[in-house]
C-alpha cells in the first residue's frame, strides 16, 4: 500500500514538475518572441559580412524597413553591382523580389526553407521572423544565475534542425546563443547575439552565425536603428518596390 502510494505520489510529482517545466519553458520562449517583436516598426541599415574559410570577406549593405513581425523590406545598397535589388517579405511566406535591371517585381516561391539565404549562413527559415514558440517545443535543460538553457525541438518534421540549444538571458530574456543541430544530431551552426537597448526596446545589434563544418560565417550588424517611426503600409506594397525612393 505504502509502496503504491509512493509511486503514485512520485508520478504526480514528476508529472507536475515536467508540466511546470514545459509551461515555464514555453513561457520563456514566448517572452523571448515578444521581446524580439516588441517594436511596432523599425528602420535600420543592415551590414552583412560573409567570411569564408580562407578569411576572405564579402560585404553587403541594405536598408531595412520592418513593420510588425512579417512585413520586411530590404533594399540593397552594396555591393554596387547589386544595388537596388529589393526583397519584400509579407505574411504567409510571400516573398517578392525586385531586380532593377529587369524592372519588374517577381514573386518567389520558396519551396525549400532550409536553403541558405543568398550566400549567407542563415537559412530562409532563420530569416523568416516566425515566432520560435510557434515552431519549436521548448524544454529547460539548465539554468544558472545568468542564463537559462533551453532545448528547442521542432514541431514540424520538415525542419532542417533536430534541435536548437538556446541560451537565454535570465534577466531580460533575450537570446545570447543558439546552437543548431542537424537532422543527424550533429552540431553544425552557432549563432551568437549581442543585444543592446535603445529607448524601451532591446534589439540584436549584432548577430554572428557560424557554420562550424564549413568554417564560414555571416555577421549581421544593425546600424542607425530607429523604432516606432509609424511606417506607412504603402511602403510594403508590391507596386512600390519599383520605386527607387522609399
Amino acid at each position: 500500500m505504502n509502496f503504491k502510494f509512493i509511486i503514485l505520489f512520485s508520478t504526480i510529482l514528476f508529472w507536475n514538475s515536467a508540466t511546470m517545466n514545459s509551461q515555464n519553458a514555453e513561457d520563456l520562449l514566448q517572452k523571448m518572441d515578444d521581446l524580439i517583436a516588441a517594436p511596432t516598426d523599425r528602420e535600420a541599415t543592415v551590414i552583412m559580412v560573409m567570411t569564408d574559410k580562407s578569411g576572405k570577406e564579402k560585404i553587403r549593405e541594405a536598408s531595412l524597413k520592418q513593420k510588425g513581425r512579417f512585413k520586411k523590406l530590404y533594399r540593397y545598397t552594396k555591393p554596387e553591382k547589386q544595388a537596388g535589388i529589393a526583397t519584400l517579405t509579407l505574411p504567409d511566406n510571400v516573398i517578392w523580389l525586385y531586380m532593377p535591371a529587369f524592372n519588374k517585381p517577381m514573386r518567389i516561391s520558396l519551396l525549400s526553407k532550409n536553403q541558405a539565404f543568398s550566400g549567407t549562413d542563415f537559412s530562409q527559415e532563420d530569416m523568416s521572423g516566425l515566432p520560435y514558440s510557434d515552431r519549436y517545443t521548448p524544454k529547460i535543460i539548465d539554468s544558472n544565475s545568468e542564463n537559462y538553457k533551453l532545448e528547442l525541438t521542432p514541431k514540424n518534421k520538415k525542419n532542417k534542425y533536430s534541435k536548437i540549444i538556446l541560451t537565454l538571458d535570465k534577466t531580460h530574456l533575450f537570446p545570447k546563443k543558439m546552437e543548431y543541430f542537424d537532422k543527424n544530431n550533429k552540431y553544425f551552426k552557432l549563432a551568437t547575439y549581442a543585444y543592446d537597448k535603445q529607448g524601451k526596446y532591446w534589439y540584436a545589434k549584432n548577430v554572428l552565425m557560424k557554420s562550424i563544418l564549413k568554417n564560414h560565417s555571416t555577421e549581421i550588424t544593425f546600424k542607425s536603428i530607429k523604432f516606432d517611426q509609424d511606417l506607412s503600409d504603402d511602403l510594403f506594397l508590391v507596386e512600390n518596390l519599383k520605386l527607387k525612393k522609399d
Binding site: 540593397y76 535591371a101 543568398s118
Partner: peptide, 14 residues
C-alpha cells in the same frame, strides 16, 4: 546589370 543581379540568386549556392 541583369547578369550581375541574377548572380544575387545564385551566389553562395554550394
Amino acid at each position: 546589370e541583369k547578369i550581375e543581379q541574377l548572380w544575387f540568386l545564385l551566389e553562395g549556392n554550394e
